[in-house]
């Protein structure tokens, strides 16, 4: 281990049962446990990654999704570098709750109003046959939400899981770079896009 890597705090959010813990475990140890428990309290795992030549320690925080545990979950949002909003493509409700999760995160992570923040949207369980949310619906929501990158994953068969997490880091670095350049430059278009839809409502 290099010992020189930058720590990135990643918060995984989404309704109970969409597969947050499974995504984390697939990414960190490439394992999938069909018999795993639902998460109680808060857990996290570290994973060393190299993205575009830079070393990072991703510290991935996984919390219980039920509304009830909100007050014990939200303190962990602070200091996050990346937020992955997850739903299950076979669970419409979990998709409809994305705006709620996003709001909760922005509020408790103490992100300044309108400030761009690297969200990644993950539609998990894409291996399941009974899909309720099409890729188009999800993409459409993302385009209205600062063009957040969208990935359809399956923690079960490992589809796109690595890609989603690694892309999250790239996304964060891109946004950091843009911020450093200050929004006078050509990419000001991007930034204005990002600022507006933060409060945009849910799809339908």
């Amino acid at each position: 281990m290099s010992g020189r890597s930058k720590l990135l705090k990643v918060v995984l959010l989404g309704d109970g049962g969409v597969g947050k813990s499974s995504l984390m475990n697939r990414f960190v140890s490439n394992k999938f446990d069909a018999q795993s428990y639902h998460t109680i309290g808060v857990e996290f795992l570290n994973k060393e990654v190299t993205v575009n030549g830079e070393n990072f320690t991703m510290q991935i925080w996984d919390t219980a999704g039920q509304e009830r545990f909100k007050s014990l979950r939200t303190p962990f949002y602070r200091g996050a570098d990346i937020c992955m909003l997850t739903f299950a493509v076979n669970d419409r409700k979990s998709f409809e709750n994305l705006p709620m999760w996003k709001r909760e995160f922005l509020y408790y992570a103490d992100i300044q109003d309108g400030a761009p923040f690297p969200f990644i949207i993950v539609g998990n369980k894409c291996d399941m046959p009974n899909r309720e949310i099409s890729e188009e619906m999800a993409q459409s929501w993302c385009s209205r939400n600062a063009n957040a990158p969208y990935f359809e994953t399956s923690a079960k068969d490992a589809t796109n899981v690595q890609l989603a997490f690694i892309s999250a880091v790239s996304r964060m670095r891109e946004m950091e770079d843009q911020l450093e350049v200050k929004p006078v430059q050509t990419n000001s278009v991007d930034l204005s896009k990002k600022q507006k839809p933060l409060n945009s409502g849910c799809c339908s």
């Binding site: 490439n30 394992k31 999938f32 079960k156 068969d157 490992a158 589809t159 796109n160 899981v161 690595q162």
Partner: peptide, 8 residues
């Protein structure tokens, strides 16, 4: 990598 690691 992902695919090879498939345990399903």
């Amino acid at each position: 990598n992902d695919r090879e690691g498939d345990s399903v």
